[in-house]
Each structure stands twice: as structure tokens, then as C-alpha cells.
Nucleic acid binder design. Structure first.
Lengths: 232, 232
DNA sequence: ATTGCCGGATTGTTCAACAATCCTTACGTT
DNA sequence: AACGTAAGGATTGTTGAACAATCCGGCAAT
């Protein structure tokens, strides 16, 4: 690689930062992040007046932002009642797992032809989870776990799969916020993550996929057990 | 079931029809349908002024409708240049198939525990395709084919999978509009649909999934071959 | 306890206005 | 002729005001 190509390559890495965004898109990003990290809890009604004043945008712009978020399943629009942060039902949780299984297992099965970097990403996410656990940052463990699972599906190398996974994993965040304390929902899976990553690295893709199915069944059952209590 | 519960049950079947929709949502539906059925071809710029006048809504309402459609991948918003009907690239087409494979094959593999009605739906869609072909309605054959594939993934019984499939199949419509004459892209697959449905009905789920993979590979290759010519 | 009515608050939509941006055209320079 | 620059026009992005439509809560009557 020549010296010119090197700095030009570094320049092009900055290209995403040049993409201007409309105010509506920026507002949507702020709201999305606030929902995902929990400061807007499930059930919260997002008053146009309140949010519009808080963020300093007009009602029309805010409404555009709400519409941008409509399909993400994090907010739900109720006609003439406003916009609400979604409360996930137990059926929603089950449905999320029903979608994750084919995509994540297909990712593992396709790993033989995935780029090495995508495989490395899986191992990296396992390490992130370990590091967060050692630091006692259980929210961070949950985040790393989500990223680990996103990385499994990303082995398919499909932008649409990645987006669909990001969407359901963000939704699952709502479920975790609803059950409260993150530690019991993430800590038990750290070893499972490592086992799956190890099988992946050894080229045992079917074994890894089988292991993942058992893992997902257990994670789902655990979450649903607590969810049923919390919904009562 | 008591007589009261029976008529109450019949009433609740009408509940979806009672759901009011905002003007923005109605406009989004009209635009979506116009894109999917081809009257707004790929590359078309949707002028706020023109569309707003044509549909008799204000610019703000129309902008809300555009934002509603943003995530559906049928329209693409370009900052300060407006809203355009997507032109799919060959890479988009490949990505769509990359997402369909895990979902459709997982549907077939899960068919043993799917409701009988979902399995019947698959056969029904095959018959629709046959009937449309006999009537020489090749656009209708394409529609039935899309529905057939949606029904395969729907064997998973997941709302989220159904929505994701509806989205990528709608996108694929754009590709078919770009290549023109529908007949060569749908007619050759009628027999394949019937074969897959027959294997499904016989409980040979793995065989059906294998057959489907070969079919999807062939369909993708055919579409991409023509797509490369058309993009030149 | 249930039902009906009213008022207030909020959402849904329209309109007008202005700032920001892009594209096209025209003009000047090389 | 080709290129660069500036200006103008058209359109998009945003704001704010206004009004219609809708919902919810409170109160009164049955």
C-alpha cells in the first residue's frame, strides 16, 4: 500500500461522519438510545409537548422523529393517545426467540465461509462480556451478550439480517429493563458464550449451533419465568 | 361454547376493521402499494408538492407518511433532495436471498410442529400460482409466488419473521419491476413450488428444505444474470 | 355502582413563512 | 472549447400558529 492510498483510506474512514442528518433523524436517535438504555422505561408516554420542549424542536419535527421510530418496535403509536414506549408481553419475548433461532444458528452453520474478521468479532464480544463481568458492570455484560448474538447472525454477511437482529435485540432490551436487576440474566451465559465461540473457532459449526439452541431455550425459559411473575 | 360467546367471538373478529388510521398512515399505504405494484418505478423522485396535491394532504402529513415508509426499504430519503423509490443493486438482491434462506428453510424444518392451517396455506398459494398461470396473468403468478414464500417462513409462527419476510419480498418486487417482463422469472418455479409443497405434505421436511435451497440458488442466479445486464 | 355530560388537555392536520440546500443556467476566464 | 464561479429558482427542512378531533378525568344524576 502506497503512502497516498494510506491517507486516502484513512480519509474515507471518516466518510460516515460527513453524512448530514436531519433534525428528525437526530431526535429519533436520541429517543432510541434513551429507550434502549432504559431512561425511558416501558409504558412511558412521550408527550409531544414535553419532549418537543426538552429537545428544543417543533412538534412537527418531533412527529417526524416518532414516525421514524414506528417500525423499530421500541415505541408504539396509539391513535390520538400519543406515543408510548413498548411494554413487551411474554408472547413478544417468545416471538423474538423464534426469530433469533434460525438467524443465529444459520450464522454459525455458515461460519465456514464467513470472513475471518466476522469470526474474530464473535470472540471479541465474548471477551468484552468477561471484562464487564470482572468489573461488576452487569449492564455492560448484557450489552456484550447482545453484541455477541448480533455477531453470530452477522456471520451470514447480510445487511438485512444484521438490521433485523439489531431490531429484535433492541426490543429484548425492553424485556430486560422490565425484569430489573441484570445480573441473573446475563452472568449464567458467559460460559455458554465462550463454549460456542470455542466450537466456532475449532470449525465445529453444527455442534456450535446445537449448543446455541439449547442455550437460547434456557435463556428464553428463564426470562419467561420471571416475566410471568412480573406481569401478574 | 355458549351462544353468547359465539356471537361475541364473531364480533371480535371484526375488531381490526375498527382500527382507525391516521391520514399519514393511509397515505403511506397508498404509496407503498403504488411502489409494490409498479406504478411508481424505481428511481422515481416523490415530490412533496406533487404528491401532496395529488393526494390532497398537507406537506407535513406527507412528510410523516414518508418517514413511516423509511424503514421499509422501498423508498430512500436523500437529505435535501427528497424521497426516491429505491433502485435495488445486484448486491441488494443477493442480500435479500441471504436473508430468505435461513428463514424459509427454518420454516420448512419447523413444519412438523406448525398448525395445520399454516401448512394448508402453503398448498393454497401453490394453487393460486397455477390458476394465475392458466389465466396468463404473469403478474399474478409473481404475487402468488411471493405469497408462497411468505407462507414457508410463516410456518415458524413468528410475527416478527412474517414482517421481516414481507419486507424483503416487497423489496424483491422492485427488482422484478426493474427486469421487466415477469413471465420468465415466475413460470419456471411453479413446478418447484408444487414439489416443495408435496414434500411438506408428506412430512419430508429436510428434503423440502434441500429442494428449496437449490430452488433459491437458481432463482437468485437467474435474477442476478438479468440484473447485471440491465444495470450496464 | 353505573351512566352520561362537560371541560380541559393533547394529538392530528393544515397552512404560512422562512432558512437551508441543491441544481441549473449564465457569464467570465483561460 | 473547457472549466470555474456566481446567481437564481425550485425544493426540502423546520418552525410556529391555528383549529378540528379525540381522549380522559371529574362531576352529577339515576
Amino acid at each position: 500500500m502506497t503512502a497516498t492510498a494510506e491517507w486516502a483510506s484513512r480519509l474515507s474512514a471518516a466518510r460516515p461522519a460527513l453524512e448530514r442528518a436531519s433534525t428528525a433523524e437526530l431526535v429519533a436517535g436520541v429517543l432510541r438510545e434513551s429507550v434502549i438504555e432504559g431512561s425511558l422505561p416501558p409504558g412511558t408516554r412521550l408527550s409531544e409537548e414535553v419532549i418537543g420542549q426538552a429537545l428544543g424542536v417543533s412538534r412537527n419535527t418531533l412527529r417526524e422523529a416518532f414516525r421514524l421510530l414506528s417500525h423499530e418496535n421500541l415505541l408504539v403509536h396509539e391513535f390520538h393517545r400519543g406515543m408510548f414506549v413498548r411494554r413487551l408481553t411474554a408472547a413478544d419475548v417468545a416471538d423474538i426467540y423464534r426469530m433469533r433461532r434460525p438467524l443465529e444458528t444459520a450464522g454459525l452453520r455458515a461460519a465456514g465461509s464467513a470472513p475471518a474478521e466476522a469470526v474474530r468479532e464473535v470472540a471479541r464480544r465474548v471477551e468484552e462480556g468477561r471484562a464487564a463481568a470482572e468489573a461488576g458492570d452487569w449492564g455492560g455484560v448484557g450489552t456484550a451478550n447482545m453484541r455477541f448474538h448480533g455477531a453470530l447472525a452477522a456471520l451470514l454477511g447480510s445487511r438485512r439480517v444484521d438490521e433485523a437482529m439489531a431490531r429484535v435485540l433492541a426490543e429484548l432490551r425492553l424485556a430486560f429493563h422490565a425484569v430489573g436487576e441484570p445480573r441473573p440474566f446475563h452472568e449464567p451465559y458467559l460460559d455458554g458464550n465462550a463454549r460456542i465461540a470455542a466450537l466456532l473457532a475449532e470449525g465445529k459449526y453444527e455442534r456450535a449451533a446445537d449448543e446455541l439452541l439449547a442455550y437460547l431455550d434456557a435463556a428464553e425459559a428463564q426470562l419467561l419465568a420471571t416475566y410471568d411473575e412480573r406481569s401478574a
